[in-house]
Structures are given as C-alpha cells and as structure tokens.
Design a protein around this nucleic acid. Structure first.
Length: 165
DNA sequence: GCCAACGTTGGC
DNA sequence: GCCAACGTTGGC
C-alpha cells in the first residue's frame, strides 16, 4: 500500500517524452494530461509515492531533434492507478496486474509554460552547475527522475522560464 | 539466488 | 543505424 503522504516542501522532477508520441505542444493544447504507460518499477514508485500535488515538472523531449527541456508543468493529481494496464489487447496491458492491487500508477500534470528557446541537451552539458544532473549521466534511462532545487533553478533561468504558481 | 539471454531505451 | 547500458525473464 502507498505510504502516508505527508506535506513537505515542493519537489522537482523531470519527465521524458518522445515528441512524436506526446510533445509539449500537445500538452499546451490539452492543458493537462495523465502521464500513462510508465512500466518501470523505479519510476512507478516515484509516481505512486513521491510525486505530490504542485510539484514542479521539467518536460524533456527525448529521442528528438533537438533533445531538450522544452517546457514546464506541475502535478495536478497525485498517483492513481493507470487504467491502461487493464485494457485487454491494449499496448500497455499487463495481464499480471491485479485490479485490487494495481501494479502501475500515474499522475496528472498541467501545462505551465513553454521554454522561450528549447534548452538543449548540449547546452545543459555545457553548464557546470548541471554536471551532476541525472539526465546527463551515462546510461540514465529513467523516464521520471528527480531534479534538485538548484538544478531546477538553473534550468529555469537558462530556458527563460518562471514558476507561475 | 544466480546469471545468460533477450528486449528496450535513448544518446550518438 | 548502431550499440552501450539497463531491466526483465526464465532455466537451473
């Protein structure tokens, strides 16, 4: 069972998405979306237990030209079961997941802002303050990952974005 | 519980 | 298109 969610200072995250599948423009148009289809336990634990209402989300385009942080979102609904795991024949169907104890969770995020210019991976790599960022580490594949407050502030500054909530 | 084989992610 | 790094699966 999910542990009790205590109130705590806002935390920061980076969500990866392939723009061909779901990009920042689509999020801007939709206003908000559920971040579904994550099938990795480490990411699941974050989505279910750690990522809370009003947390900040950097929207990153992976497998794209350019690879970049392209916008800002915020969590508008905390972890709840991803229904696509129960859709028979669906792409995200997991026949081993028990509806009484769902295996996969997701959150909803709301569009906040688009970067004035995409903050490219190359630009991020050139910034010493971001050297420790998980995104930039070799072999880092987690699609939902934590970002430190200092990294968050640096990224926002470089991308010309402001928190507006 | 180990680990080889396999599948996927995602930068290059 | 390649392939390194990871995660998962399944035989033993």
């Amino acid at each position: 069972m999910p542990k009790k969610k205590n109130s705590r200072p806002r935390r920061y995250w980076l969500f990866k998405s392939e723009p061909d599948v779901y990009g920042i423009d689509q999020l801007e148009k939709d206003g908000s979306t559920f971040w579904n289809g994550v099938r990795n336990y480490q990411a699941r634990n974050l989505l279910r237990d750690e990522i809370l209402l009003d947390d900040g989300v950097l929207f990153y385009h992976s497998n794209a030209k350019p690879m970049a942080v392209v916008g800002l979102a915020r969590v508008c609904k905390e972890g709840y079961p991803d229904q696509t795991q129960f859709e028979d024949g669906g792409k995200y169907h997991d026949p081993d997941s028990d509806p009484a104890d769902p295996r996969w969770y997701h959150v909803d995020v709301k569009f906040v802002a688009k970067a004035k210019e995409p903050l490219t991976r190359d630009m991020m790599k050139a910034e010493p303050k971001l050297a420790e960022m998980m995104l930039l580490q070799r072999g880092s594949r987690l699609s939902v990952q934590p970002v430190t407050r200092s990294e968050w502030q640096t990224v926002l500054r470089l991308a010309g974005m402001k928190e507006s909530w």
